[in-house]
Design a protein around this nucleic acid. Structure first.
Lengths: 243, 243
DNA sequence: GCACGCCGTCCGCGTTTCGTAAGGACTTCC
DNA sequence: GGAAGTCCTTACGAAACGCGGACGGCGTGC
């Protein structure tokens, strides 16, 4: 029936807790729920990790040695938009209120059911995902070519190109990496998302793409062949107005 | 984050509780916090009101006469994407878990601090608002189309369109994001509020909507098909590329 | 109770797109 | 100049996709 196989596209969770036991339990449950979990045992470590490898969500213990949990929360918030779930020992109202005021997105009080925590994480992520799904990538330009991933439109010299899905993605990838040589295998991985497959597939699609964007497909100027390696996209005229 | 002066652009809250005392207290606090509050005392009433005038958030008591709170939650969720905060008497884990599983975004256990409730509401709203990026409170226009989320009326060339609930929401979403290509999955999430489900549902509703707004439904001009991707709404009555 | 409207699902069909195979053309290197 | 390796071109079958039509369930209003 319906495809339930659309769970979390591997969300990265950062668990911040100084208690090794709690951390282990939480990590275990989250990993079993197919999340990629990272662990930090104190505030400084948490901020460092969050800065390096931006997590999709942070599970943060309120009681931490050194930096207070609230302070960590504040600084995380300042560093960028990231959903935060607070973890506290007491169900004290004061804590909850301050936690929410500082900007935590949710709150779980110990002792908590791991099942509940997982659900909360999933819930907050779902909500957050709905927000950030809009890829903030602008339209790509090179020479007289234009590719807009958002509208999924591509133009050459102002005229709209009728590209298929694969052709569009391929061209977009080329525009994202101008001047770089890409092996067929790499293209297959980045554009198709496959780790194996007939590499001639790439060849054929490059040819079809050339037929649509090149002035003279027999003598390609935009998508050049790098012998023994693969292809390289070279931005067309209009840029190199050198005399 | 001391932005007390960036309140809510008048969010509409629907409070569902059969206990007059609780309802009054909650309503009072929320109104003092500058929310526009509506009240329903039972499940059926709640569903009706939510259907007519879509609230920005629902505060829902778990214990209700007639329709169960969980059932109401389920149906609200089925009717469209709306944030829900559950109100439960016991801090029983079972309740919390089932509440979250059904799709509540948050819950508050009685006895609760009104201040906390307000903060929760604000928090969930903030999250949700980040999602819907810029509340489109005004009436939307594109070409000879007009969609007013407030009154839930839509017109084309001055003539009122008889749209169903889903059709209206779908069209409104399209008008909010003109030119953008949306995958079926994304539409299902943003318009239906579901994370999974048969994607052909989207296809069918697009077809029905086309039948009502397109000049020639067989050759759609407004809601275009993006092969292998989804759909794109293209405003403009007379094809921008003229002469 | 009955008819109607809305909604979600399913089925068959025509079309588009994709992946692969096979032969020819070109480059490189000896 | 020739051989081996690499790339181009073409063609074709199959799969994927979107569309229209229709059905049954559910809730609502008559």
């Amino acid at each position: 029936m319906s495809e339930h196989s659309v769970p979390h596209p591997v969300a990265r969770i950062l668990v911040v807790d100084d208690d090794p036991t709690v951390a282990e339990v939480v990590t275990g449950y989250l990993e079993r729920a197919r999340f990629a979990v990272e662990h930090a045992s104190d505030g400084v470590d948490a901020l460092r990790r969050a800065g390096e490898r931006r997590p999709d969500l942070v599970v943060l213990d309120l009681m931490l040695p050194g930096l207070d949990g609230l302070e960590v929360c504040r600084r995380l918030r300042a560093a960028g938009p990231v959903p935060i779930i607070m973890l506290t020992a007491r169900s004290d109202e004061e804590d909850r209120v301050t936690g929410l005021e500082v900007g935590a997105d949710d709150y779980v009080t110990k002792p908590f059911s791991p099942r509940e925590l997982v659900l909360r994480v999933a819930s907050v992520l779902r909500r957050d995902r709905a927000a950030t799904t809009a890829a903030p990538r602008g339209t790509l330009r090179a020479g007289d070519l234009t590719v807009d991933p958002e509208t999924r439109r591509a133009t050459r010299a102002g005229r709209e190109l009728a590209l298929t899905l694969r052709e569009f993605d391929l061209l977009a990838y080329f525009l994202e990496h101008p001047g770089t040589a890409h092996g067929r295998e790499a293209l297959m991985r980045r554009v198709w998302g496959w780790d194996f497959g007939d590499l001639s597939t790439v060849t054929v699609h490059v040819r079809r793409l050339r037929a649509k964007i090149e002035e003279d497909p027999a003598r390609p100027a935009l998508i050049q062949t790098v012998w023994g390696v693969g292809y390289r996209f070279e931005p067309g005229p209009g840029q190199e107005a050198l005399g």
